[in-house]
Design a binder for these strands. Structure first.
Ligand code: FES
Ligand code: FES
Lengths: 161, 161
DNA sequence: GGAAATAGAACCATTTTGGTCCTCTATTCA
DNA sequence: TGAATAGAGGACCAAAATGGTTCTATTTCC
């Protein structure tokens, strides 16, 4: 339930890009200096982000990286996916359930998919533009209402407690 | 962005409890057998869940574990918290930012808190009762609408692109 | 008192992650 | 043409987290 440090830094870097101009390219060393991290580390992260089509790389003299699209077209889910693979909280997806020992007798796998969807969508709704805001909106429109009590019974209950 | 296997199994176990009767107590060995996992592993998980006040333990002969409250009063967020600590996707919280090297110059820490809130709330809204449903509701009321385009500009934009 | 159950902690093997470094390729410009 | 600059890709190793097991205490019922 915690993302890796690389993904963490990845968001910082991408947010930094979002704060800078739209199509500007910046070199690895510049970014590293501005974000106060080591050049090799940033380099590794930038490469992964470029592989994920979130950054465009330009080699050679005057080269560097730039955002591949507008800041409000890139979500934190995109960044995380680029840096640590598909977002999914469980080891047991519907596809390949290797890694889970109880795949055949497990009765919650279907539900897990829905849980995954919930957090994935939550992350998809947060864009780099949001992150770039100095003190952002409250994200109220991004998260479901905090109803702690009972959920509106929109689903079919047989045994209605 | 992936929860540990113990938390994974923890949810399976808790869901299993939710499917059984309300106040029934079950022994470690029974649960382990029913969930098809090793006894020591389940034991470790059950102990942690009891420490988190999600299960009530009864020692001695005829002892075992039982849910501490109704299934719709326990969220998957509770289970995860009990098994892997407070939910927070980043290493750098507002409280103790040890572990992050750029805490003082980082400009996204405030926003991270909001991101954390989004997923935490999403997880808090899913109860064991939901998980216990054979094929559950679509969780439509649990997740924010999948608006992929532009967000309703409810927040203050200075530079409105 | 003995059997049955959990509590708690120590323990080690394996995997994952963090971080660095080296070589190769592409681009610009003198 | 060739030197300088910048990224691509991968090998590499140390450190940390995780998974899983086992042992000894403590509580409870008969
Ligand atoms: S298949 Fe792995 S927990 Fe359900
Ligand atoms: S303080 Fe750690 S990434 Fe911002």
């Amino acid at each position: 339930m915690r993302l890796t440090r690389q993904a963490d830094y990845g968001i910082v870097v991408m947010t930094h890009f979002a704060r800078l101009g739209e199509g500007e390219t910046h070199t690895t060393r510049d970014i590293a200096a501005e974000v106060h991290l080591s050049v090799p580390m940033i380099s590794k992260i930038l490469k992964a982000l470029a592989r994920g089509d979130l950054l465009v790389s330009q080699r050679g003299v005057n080269g560097g990286y730039s955002l591949s699209r507008a800041a409000d077209e890139i979500s934190v889910a995109d960044v995380i996916t680029a840096l640590e693979g598909p977002i999914g909280m469980t080891a047991c997806t519907d596809e390949h359930s290797d890694g889970c020992d109880i795949d055949d007798v497990c009765a919650v796998r279907g539900n897990w998919q829905l849980v995954n969807q919930v957090v994935r969508r939550a992350l998809e709704n947060i864009t780099l533009e949001h992150m770039a805001e100095p003190m952002p909106c409250t994200f109220d429109e991004l998260m479901p209402p905090p109803r702690k009590e009972r959920l509106p019974q929109a689903h079919n209950h047989e045994r209605d407690s």
